[in-house]
Design a protein around this nucleic acid. Structure first.
Lengths: 146, 146
DNA sequence: GTCATATAGGAGTACTATAGTCCTACTCGG
DNA sequence: CCGAGTAGGACTATAGTACTCCTATATGAC
């Protein structure tokens, strides 16, 4: 099993795509779906989630579409993950205090709390700006493998 | 959603319990199930998984039960997690190379690969020995909260 | 105004994985 | 060699995820 769901993967790709168009035109869901290999219907669903979370702005009507609500440098991976699949937690007891009655004396929870914190900080530290510049430079020096 | 499944949580508790009895008597599944608040049938199932992974030794017949196959210091959290729920992966593409055709040019996968590695190293670094000594000292100075 | 094209969003389905149960087979102490 | 107590395999139910379908709403072009 993987931590990031496919949902989140799609959302990530869509956001990276939008980051590439930041400051320019809006991108329609149809275009996102073809460019990122996501079914149109499902892509629409995901864009709704991102919109509800305030990560993207939407423009309705013909020539409408989506654009980033904030500059790429201010959108972290954690933001996107939270919007789509909710907060990531090592164990249930970090999400719901009442999940486990043994919590107060639990040595396990105490040990992994540090790792939990590190993961969140790492994900919060990676922003869309890094992805965007990377993929741009990749487009320039085309042919470079991996 | 949490990364560690309930399954894994049960297994962790059972292993910590066994670590407390390391060198002494074997512990019966019935005893583990009552002490750790797990249904007997389900506990038996989890012990099977741990046994199949070679983490515990089993003794059948009356007065039988389980004991650690290795000293607590040589059993890591990662070992237990792998035995019960398989390897932890941030994204499917770390588990299955063919999961994503865009892999070679994927900037996302490249970015999170480092975090993936850190998580595994962290989990591999935490051993049962730490839990065992912690819970023992906790039993001695009883009354200490959290 | 109305038509075409876009997002918004609710309802529902198929599938998969997880949690949990039941039953049988096997051991070994008495 | 009996039976209490174990391991271990087969099975079921539930829940969550991925995905689709359909309808409503907004808006720019003609």
């Amino acid at each position: 099993m993987s931590i990031l769901r496919r949902n989140t993967d799609y959302a990530l790709r869509a956001m990276v795509n939008l980051a590439g168009h930041y400051g320019g035109d809006v991108v329609a869901t149809r275009q996102l779906s073809t460019e990122e290999d996501i079914s149109y219907q499902y892509a629409a669903k995901i864009m709704q989630l991102l919109h509800a979370a305030g990560l993207v702005k939407s423009t309705m009507g013909p020539h409408g579409g989506f654009s980033l609500a904030r500059p790429p440098a201010e959108v972290s991976l954690l933001d996107i993950i939270k919007a789509v699949q909710g907060a990531i937690s090592l164990n249930d007891c970090f999400l719901d205090v009442d999940a486990c009655p043994r919590r107060s004396t639990c040595v396990i929870s105490a040990k992994i709390a540090g790792l939990q914190e590190y993961i969140e900080k790492s994900l919060a530290g990676i922003t869309l700006a890094e992805f965007a510049t990377d993929s741009m430079s990749e487009q320039i020096k085309l042919g470079k493998e991996k």
